[in-house]
Amino acid sequence: MSETLAAVRAETTKLRGIRGTQVSLLLFAAVSILIAALGGWSAKNALESDNPSLRSDFTPEQAGLDGILYGQLALIVFGVLVVTSEYTSGMMRVSLLAVPRRGRLYAAKMGVTALAALTASVPVTVLGYLVTQAALGSHGSSLGASGVPRALAGSVVYLTLMCLFAAGVAAIARSAVVPLAVLLPMVLAGTHILSLIGATKEMARYFPDQAGNELLTVDSPHTAFGFTVLLAWTVAAVGWGWVRQRRWDS
């Protein structure tokens, strides 16, 4: 057990020391909160000028979670980079010399990635929500509004799982290019477009991000469904990544 804890500490130091991963975590916080502020501010203007461009289902509570939808892109990049930083140089060999048990190394890496995503997601989610409400001014809601604590917790779970999912996909691919080329467009637009087309609407519900969005939706009736689907994707990606790691022969 203490060997595993030592590996976890080492992975934490690696994660802190590598600039790319640090920058992506900072971007996650910056983008989420910036979009939260801009979203709140423009919604406030729209409300006060009776602008019809405002979504019909607009609620200040839901608007407080919009920043996350953009910030998550940086967190996905973070999850991918944490894993692929081992493959860009000969780092994986050094890591395996230090921690030759592949299961221990992989578990430590994934555990630290999840922990970092979780630790960053809590303040960013809460702060993003509060910033939106502040920007909305008199139209803003509160942290304790109905369904909000649950949606904020759902957001933290969603972000952590999406980050782990990305890390798992990167472990499968062993390179950053393919995971980023697939995951970023998917999350940005792909599944949203599918969900608008009648024929693919039902299918789109089962994509990790679309399913996970149920966790971010205030008072969603499908939270359990969304959580289960996203969890299944994450377990599958991390599991397949483990198979690839175990077979890795340098």
Binding site: R19, G90, S250
Partner: peptide, 12 residues
């Protein structure tokens, strides 16, 4: 063939 990550400092 084993090389540390280029983004780390020697000390880290």
């Amino acid at each position: 063939t084993s090389a540390p990550h280029r983004g780390l400092t020697a000390r880290d």
